[in-house]
């Protein structure tokens, strides 16, 4: 707001300490507990580990239940990459037409898109649909559901961005002989790069962290995803807090890396998405 006023040093120091205590201590607690021995971790204290068992804990968690965690990481990666890749292309195509063709038809469709943001998904009927199509308890089924759930958010973000792409470009490309497919994929889609980066990052984090959808639509150990494994872990190792927190740490690392690389896109994307919705 007012950059000319001198920064208030006392307030700054107080605020920084407060933020660190409130927001960083829980993460420090995760890291420290993940490095403790089992008996020490059971004390639940926020303290420096007397002996570091980080590597042993890491190995124990990874090897637990026949490398289930590795399988879960692979499954979650497949789920995230496939659903995000598909939704980006399909949502961009739909948003392009919805944004360029303004009419009674498309404004009705826009309302339907908006409903996708508000309506809580009907879970058991979705299982019914998956069962009718033979996709229940399969990875492709879950991928399709994730695509459907992400569609509304992505279409709205794309629409807002496409509005800033000049129509003259479409006309020029059409005059040069581009058909609709060429126009979209050769001319418009590459221009959407900034918003595509944002959507890919934000959606990847959403899908990676999604717990409810795999719980309902892809139950069973052979299809484990990271969030489900994490949740089941607490039931199986009630007192091995060091292993539980190592698991939490591992599951948290991919979003952390995403955040460090793409902080600006994530924040701007979430702000834009929420202001739209």
């Amino acid at each position: 707001m007012n950059t000319r006023t001198r920064p208030n040093y006392w307030l700054s120091a107080l605020a920084i300490v407060l933020f660190a205590v409130v927001f960083l201590i829980p993460f420090a607690f995760i890291v420290l507990t993940a490095a403790k021995s089992q008996t020490e971790s059971a004390l639940l204290q926020f303290s420096w580990p007397t002996e570091w068992a980080f590597v042993q804990n890491l190995r124990a968690v990874v090897e637990a239940r026949d490398y289930l965690l590795i399988i879960a990481f692979i499954n979650s990666t497949i789920l995230t990459v496939a659903s995000v890749a598909v939704v980006v292309v399909l949502a961009a195509m739909a948003a392009f037409v919805l944004q360029r063709r303004k009419g009674r038809w498309t404004s009705g469709l826009n309302l339907v898109v908006l409903s996708g943001l508000v309506i809580p998904p009907a879970v058991v009927p979705t299982i019914w649909v998956l069962q009718q199509t033979g996709l229940f308890k399969t990875m492709p089924g879950l991928i399709l559901v994730e695509i459907a759930y992400a569609m509304a958010f992505c279409v709205l973000l794309f629409q807002a961005f496409i509005a800033s792409v000049p129509r003259e470009l479409d006309e020029a490309a059409t005059i040069d002989g581009a058909g609709p497919v060429g126009l979209f994929f050769r001319v418009v889609f590459p221009l959407l790069r900034p918003i595509i980066v944002t959507i890919v990052v934000v959606q990847s984090v959403f899908v990676w962290n999604d717990f409810a959808s795999p719980l309902y639509f892809l139950p069973g150990d052979e299809n484990a995803t990271v969030q489900l494994t994490l949740f089941n872990f607490q039931g199986q190792y009630t007192n091995a807090y060091n292993l539980l927190f190592m698991d939490i740490l591992l599951v948290t690392v991919p979003p952390l890396i995403m955040f460090m690389i793409f902080q600006r896109q994530i924040v701007s994307g979430m702000v834009a998405g929420s202001v739209k919705g």
Binding site: V87, L90, A91, M93, A94, F96, V97, L98, L109, V112, G116, P121, A122, V123, P125, T126, W128, V129, L130, T133, L144, V145, I147, A148, Y149, M151, A152, V155, P180, F184
Partner: peptide
Amino acid sequence: FLIPGGLIFTIFFLVP
């Protein structure tokens, strides 16, 4: 262009 995305959205979100 609306069909592929709309189909998935309809089958797995609107229909349920």
